[in-house]
Amino acid sequence: MSIVVTGATGQLGRLTVEALLRRGGPAADIVATGRDTAGIKDLADRGVVTRRADFADPDSLAAAFAGAEKLLLISASIPVDERLAHHCRAIDAALTAGVSLIAYTSMTRADTARTILAGTHRATEEYLRERDAHAVVLRNSWYLENYTDQLPLALQHGTFLGAAGGGRVSAATRADYAEAAAVVLTTEGHTGAFYELGGDQAFTLAELAATASAATGTPIAYSDLPAGAFTQALTGAGVPPELARILADSDLGLGRGELFTDTGDLRRLIGRPTTTLADALAAALR
């Protein structure tokens, strides 16, 4: 059985390859792809097949997906107005290659959420249906790393910034989402499923700040800003304008409950409780 993972040069893709290896299948049955395979040479050294796959280059996709039985299509981290076209090319290439299952990493509540990112995910899910693809949709909530990576700045300035109000986010670690993807790719019975994936313990950004304060012994507050002011704060910190706009828009969605899920799907797939915010913060501090 050949399993192809797109975006293996990125964090979620690499973690999924590692999770597949831990599940005991032959390394030679895993195909790790990326635009620049130099970044995954270490995987090749461990017996994983590595191939170039560029969503903008259909010929590279045809070669990368050749002989694959299952595909993990990790949503593209590119300009948002290009994402759908790239996803459609990958889906077309997978179906032409005869892939029997496409697992797509979408976003919580993608069918109803009003954020910019959710729109691209919803359109991709619709394209999978239009193409009558055998698919499973992994609707991931936010990464805990989105917050733990901010910890140095929060400690420096004594605050987390956001525009989420009192909304609750069901964030989980990339490793938990990767493990769920590996389970779906190596077990049966998932075709047609829509999994709403998130951490067991949802939290507000005020609770994030309180938990970070307890973990560090340093007072950290949450400062809730209007979306425009949050966008300006992000760009002032060096975040590219388009990304700043998307992050502020996503916080508004968080405030509307669009990154919250209590299905327990992630816990059931990985067979254990999800990583807690407190544990993720402790790991980041280490």
Rank of each mutant, 00 (worst) to 15 (best):
Ile3Cys: 04
Val5His: 07
Gly7Lys: 09
Thr9Phe: 09
Thr9Pro: 13
Arg14Ile: 01
Arg14Met: 06
Thr16Leu: 07
Thr16Asn: 08
Arg22Ile: 01
Gly25Arg: 15
Pro26Glu: 01
Ala27Phe: 05
Ile30Pro: 07
Ala32Leu: 10
Ala32Arg: 14
Ala32Ser: 11
Asp36His: 02
Asp42Trp: 00
Asp42Met: 04
Arg52Asp: 00
Phe55Gly: 06
Ala56Gln: 07
Ala56Leu: 11
Pro58Tyr: 01
Ser60Glu: 02
Gly67Phe: 03
Glu69Asn: 03
Ile74His: 08
Ser77His: 02
Pro79Thr: 03
Arg83Trp: 00
Arg83His: 07
Leu84Trp: 05
His86Arg: 08
Ala90Cys: 06
Ala93Cys: 13
Ala94His: 09
Gly98Leu: 11
Ser100Leu: 02
Ser100Lys: 12
Tyr104Ala: 09
Tyr104Glu: 09
Ser106His: 09
Ala110Pro: 04
Asp111Trp: 02
Ala118Asp: 03
Ala118Leu: 09
Gly119Lys: 14
Gly119Cys: 10
His121Phe: 09
His121Pro: 14
Ala123Ile: 11
Thr124Val: 08
Glu125Tyr: 12
Glu125Pro: 13
Arg129Leu: 09
His134Leu: 03
Val136Cys: 15
Val136Ala: 15
Leu138Arg: 08
Arg139Val: 00
Asn140Met: 12
Glu145Phe: 08
Asn146Gln: 12
Tyr147Arg: 12
Tyr147Ala: 13
Thr148Ala: 03
Thr159Ala: 15
Phe160Leu: 11
Gly165Arg: 02
Gly166Phe: 09
Val169Arg: 08
Ala171Lys: 01
Arg174Glu: 00
Ala175Ile: 06
Ala175Pro: 01
Ala175Gln: 05
Asp176Glu: 10
Asp176Gln: 04
Ala180Glu: 12
Ala182Phe: 02
Thr191Ile: 14
Thr191Val: 15
Gly192Ser: 12
Thr204Gln: 04
Thr204Tyr: 06
Leu205Tyr: 10
Glu207Gly: 11
Leu208Lys: 03
Thr211Leu: 06
Ala215Leu: 05
Ile220Pro: 15
Ile220Met: 10
Asp224Thr: 05
Leu225Asn: 10
Gly228Ile: 03
Gly228Cys: 09
Ala229Tyr: 00
Phe230Tyr: 15
Phe230Glu: 05
Phe230His: 14
Thr231His: 13
Leu234Met: 12
Val239Arg: 07
Pro241Trp: 04
Ala244His: 07
Ala248Gln: 03
Asp251Tyr: 11
Leu252Ser: 12
Leu254Pro: 00
Arg256Asn: 14
Gly257Ala: 09
Leu259Asn: 13
Gly264Ala: 11
Asp265Lys: 14
Leu266Ile: 01
Leu269Phe: 04
Leu269Ser: 06
Ile270Phe: 01
Arg272Tyr: 01
Leu277Asn: 10
Asp279Glu: 14
Ala280Gln: 06
Leu281Gly: 04
Arg286Ile: 05
Arg286Cys: 06
